[in-house]
């Protein structure tokens, strides 16, 4: 017993010190892969009933709509930033990109925070994990990250992007139907989850070597049945042909609910366990929250 305690303390100290070391970040991804899925494509989702949620409630969506086939990429988002900053839609202050939001109705409910009309944070340019740079006038994507999903965008930023082009964020119901189709599948591709279907925590994709188990983003549409240097994927598109509806990045949805200021995300991310990628699972955060696993895609109505 005499030597056990000092030895244990030494092991603990060493472990904790090694745990506090910072990972090294390169300026580009370890691999440059283009899965060949066009991020400018839109998928058609018809009106009709679908099975919503874990308990499969029949829900009617009474309108046709379209959703982006992939999450918004760095390339798409940087194009928006350059345009919106130039035309004054976005304002730059203290390395923070701000945009106008008209505010929400406030109910004064317990824990509810008032979202007033005014300029709100869309992107914090000092956020860790941004895959683009800003030289004071122009945004540029880090080479190799063009087709990776954009991350660290607040809900205001995601909404701002979509509205800039006349689109909107999908509602939670629209998102879920697009991911699930009309049957009761728990994942966009079917009933089971495995490393070949999606980018999730410790899913051993080639990009995971870069940032550890919670990994890096994979290029949009990576899980399309392609083989990347021996890493075999399955075509994991949803029944309506949308990619990355489970894993890679969580996606902001558009609902603003009564009595709360939280905004909801769907799909799970590279930092979540497989079960968190089930189509009905949601996460939520304040609308000015941003993180390296949060992205979005847009929806739009179909003109009759």
């Amino acid at each position: 017993m005499k030597h056990t305690l000092p030895l244990l303390l030494l092991v603990l100290f060493t472990a904790l010190v090694s745990g506090c070391s910072t990972p090294s970040f390169a300026s580009g991804p370890p691999l440059i892969i283009d899965p060949g899925i066009d991020p400018d494509q839109w998928a058609d989702i018809p009106a009709g009933e679908f099975l919503q949620g874990q308990f499969e409630h029949e829900v009617m969506l009474d309108h046709d709509y379209q959703m982006m086939v992939t999450p918004v990429t760095n390339q798409q988002f940087v194009f928006y930033l350059n345009q919106a900053l130039a035309d004054g839609t976005l304002k730059l202050a203290d390395n923070r990109l701000m945009g106008y939001y008209p505010g929400d109705e406030f109910h004064g409910y317990r824990h509810e925070v008032e979202i007033t009309a005014g300029d709100w944070l869309q992107v914090d340019l000092e956020a860790e994990g941004l895959r683009y740079t800003f030289d004071g006038s122009v945004f540029t994507v880090l080479p190799g990250y063009e087709k990776h999903p954009v991350v660290s965008v607040t809900w205001f930023g995601a909404l701002g992007y979509c509205q800039y082009y006349g689109w909107r964020l999908p509602s939670e119901l629209e998102w879920e139907k697009a991911a699930r189709g009309t049957d009761a599948r728990p994942y966009p591709w079917g009933d089971e989850i495995g490393f070949e279907y999606a980018n999730f925590y410790s899913s051993r994709d080639p990009f995971e070597a870069f940032l550890g188990k919670s990994g890096d983003t994979t290029p949009v549409g990576f899980y399309n049945g392609g083989n990347y240097d021996g890493f075999e994927t399955v075509n994991a598109a949803s029944p309506y042909g949308l990619y990355d509806m489970a894993g890679n990045v969580e996606e902001w949805t558009g609902n603003v609910y009564e009595k709360q200021h939280y905004r909801y995300m769907r799909g799970g991310s590279k930092a979540n366990y497989g079960y968190e990628l089930r189509v009905w699972v949601s996460n939520n955060a304040e609308p000015d929250y941003f993180g390296p696993s949060i992205g979005f895609r847009c929806a739009r109505d179909v003109q009759p």
Binding site: L12, A15, L16, S18, G19, C20, S21, T22, P23, E128, G129, L211, G212, K213, S214, A271, G291, P292, S293
Partner: peptide
Amino acid sequence: ISEYTQQPLVDTVMAL
């Protein structure tokens, strides 16, 4: 610690 830099710490505490 931020989500972006957490992994080494997470690996260590999970091991412990």
